Amino acid sequence: MDTMSRSTTAPTAPWGRVRRSRYLADRALKAICILFTCLGVFVLGWILLMLLYQGISALRPEVFTNTTPGPMTQGGGIANAIAGSFILTFLGIVVATPVGVLAGTYLAEYGRGSKLAEVIRFVNDILLAAPSILIGLFVYTLMVQPMGGYSGWAGGVALAIIAVPVIVRTTEDMLRIVPGSLREAGAALGAPMSKVITKITWRAARAGMITGILLATARIAGETAPLLFTALNNNFWFRADLMGGVANLPVMIYQYALSPYQNWRELAWAGALVITLTILALSIVARLLFRKDVAR
């Protein structure tokens, strides 16, 4: 009876069997992790609050209706920069989406463990980590110099190169999550692989693939370095052929924030707030779509 009563008693606390030095080391590491996490959250929160304070105070109706001012001028707005950023981001994502989706589909459906797929994944990982300024220099050599000047087309291509690896990685990961039984069911009905992919696997992974496209859009919306070498900037509306400099928010923020003019610095804060809120909205939408896809 004594043996049975002892065996049915509550087990000893796990830390009771651990030496005190290990217990103290675990607690110390946990405290350090919490400390640095709080430090990171504090710094990010401080930046966001400063951006909200400075940006909201600089916002006024004419900011969204007037073009960017020249030197030694008062007032002005960022309407042309907002429109230019929209055009460049749209061009970049339109070029990157089919390339990224089809490449990710090949890696997940056709390539799998092939040597070519391994090479593509390796190159894709390099592009994911490549500094954006190098991509800007590459497109400058590839397009700007031969075309004889800056253009929105070169800016769109530079942004597309940055967005492609994000879409490729997300598309491959989402397609790999799709159960193989769905593919087998489509093949059992006599559907070719192309139909199985377009009608079954793409539909099953649709929300996740859209999430990747939105994340890529948020990734390129705030890029500055590649646009300095491709689209540059101006104080006017963009031309219909997108040749010449194209006004955009990232480069405008970079140039105006370093200027000695007070109204330029205010417009830089306003532009930073607009682009931050846009990227935040895209990230929230992407996460909601991803959660919906996982829940299904």
Rank of each mutant, 00 (worst) to 15 (best):
M4C: 06
M4L: 14
A13I: 10
R20Q: 15
A31G: 06
I32N: 09
C33S: 13
L35F: 15
G45W: 12
W46M: 12
L52R: 02
G55L: 09
I56C: 12
L59E: 05
E62L: 08
T65V: 15
T68G: 09
Q74E: 08
G77C: 07
G77V: 03
I78S: 04
A79S: 09
A83E: 13
S85R: 01
F86Q: 05
T89S: 12
T89Y: 01
V94N: 02
V94S: 04
V99S: 03
A103T: 13
G104E: 03
A108T: 06
G111R: 02
G113M: 09
K115N: 13
V119L: 14
V123C: 08
D125P: 13
I126W: 06
I126H: 05
A129G: 13
A130Q: 03
I133W: 00
I135H: 03
M143T: 01
S151W: 01
G156W: 00
L159C: 00
T171M: 08
R183P: 05
G186W: 02
L189P: 08
P192Q: 03
S194E: 14
V196C: 10
T198K: 10
I200F: 11
T201A: 08
T211M: 02
L214G: 01
A216Y: 01
A221Y: 06
G222S: 14
E223R: 00
A225M: 02
P226N: 01
L227G: 00
A231W: 00
V246S: 04
V251A: 00
A257D: 05
N263M: 09
R265L: 09
G271M: 03
I279S: 11
L280C: 11
A281M: 04
F290K: 15
R291N: 11
K292T: 10
K292N: 14
R296Y: 08
